[in-house]
């Protein structure tokens, strides 16, 4: 008798760590609420040491807990597509730049993974994407929790049909972008004094010239920029996944089970009663 070529299947240690996910989510929400409501000192009145520390540990710690809770739950098919999403996030920024694009498009990989592999994989892709990006650009690091939120919401939007029709994608992008902008604003303000690109800082400067506090100005800018960015990202991802061959989509249980692309998912047809009764008819096209 020949020996098996594969190792023994997992017997334990793979149980979902939902508690970690709940704790991570709660930490991120508590950090956000602390920063926008309890934190009394406006950053532009001082450097806000406590606020910076809370931002760093709250959002990074929350993101780390989310990843620690989510990773053991993911299947191998979800796992292999995550590095692809992370690499796309980072590389597409460069392609967009070479094509003269004026928006970031740094969440295309996250949203793509979320649509194909689900909200958990999307959230982990977003958080890990910014953590790995931090090796090349440390400014991306504190935004990991916001990126995780984008992945989570994109996956939930896909789960409930936002990618079944192309005109629903920008609506979902608008909502997700607005929430992402709200979460990213305190990070930008309390960690870096809202420093960003010349384009985003120009928008903040407009609101500051009207007398807005720094956090308010950065939040308004986040609502504008992130919403526009995510509208484009969601539409681009929708058009890309519509162009994918059905076989490529079918390999993802999430996309198959929830028919995230509607009729385009290419779900296997149910076996006919006659064939099923004879035990045949796999239904493969």
């Amino acid at each position: 008798m020949s020996s098996p070529l594969t190792l023994a299947p997992a017997t334990g240690g793979q149980r979902p760590r939902r508690l970690l996910v709940v704790l991570g989510g709660a930490l991120i929400v508590a950090t956000y609420l602390f920063l926008v409501t309890v934190q009394p000192a406006e950053i532009a009145g001082g450097m806000g040491s406590v606020a910076s520390l809370v931002t760093l540990f709250g959002f990074l710690g929350g993101g780390a807990l989310l990843v620690a809770g989510i990773l053991p739950m993911l299947s191998t098919s979800s796992l292999v597509v995550m590095p692809l999403g992370i690499a796309l996030n980072i590389a597409i920024g460069q392609i967009a730049g070479s094509l003269g694009m004026q928006i970031y498009l740094d969440a295309i990989g996250t949203v793509l993974v979320a649509v194909l592999a689900g909200p958990a994989a999307g959230a982990a892709t977003g958080a890990l994407s910014n953590a790995i990006w931090g090796l090349f650009n440390p400014f991306a690091l504190p935004f990991a929790a916001g990126a995780a939120l984008i992945g989570l919401l994109a996956g939930l939007a896909a789960r409930y049909g936002a990618f079944r029709r192309v005109y629903l994608a920008p609506v979902a992008g608008l909502v997700v972008g607005a929430i992402g902008g709200l979460v990213a604003a305190p990070v930008a303000v309390f960690m870096f004094g809202a420093a960003g690109t010349f384009g985003t800082n120009a928008i903040i400067a407009v609101f500051r010239s009207m007398g807005d506090k720094l956090l308010v100005a950065a939040t308004k800018q986040g609502l504008l920029s992130d919403s526009l960015d995510k509208i484009v990202v969601f539409v681009v991802v929708a058009l890309i996944v519509y162009a994918l061959p059905p076989r490529a989509v079918r390999q993802f249980p999430f996309a198959r089970t929830h028919r995230v692309l509607g009729g385009r998912t290419g779900a296997l047809p149910a076996p006919s009663p006659v064939k099923a009764a004879h035990g045949g008819g796999s239904g493969v096209a």
């Binding site: 594969t6 997992a10 334990g12 292999v80």
Partner: peptide
């Protein structure tokens, strides 16, 4: 640019999925 790029990468990922499973990646 993106559509052929993503299709190619997904095909690669599918191959990688099978190779990893064949080498016991799921094992704990």
């Amino acid at each position: 640019v993106m559509t052929p790029l993503v299709i190619g990468l997904l095909v690669d990922a599918s191959e990688r999925n099978r190779m990893l499973e064949a080498r016991g990646f799921s094992s704990s």
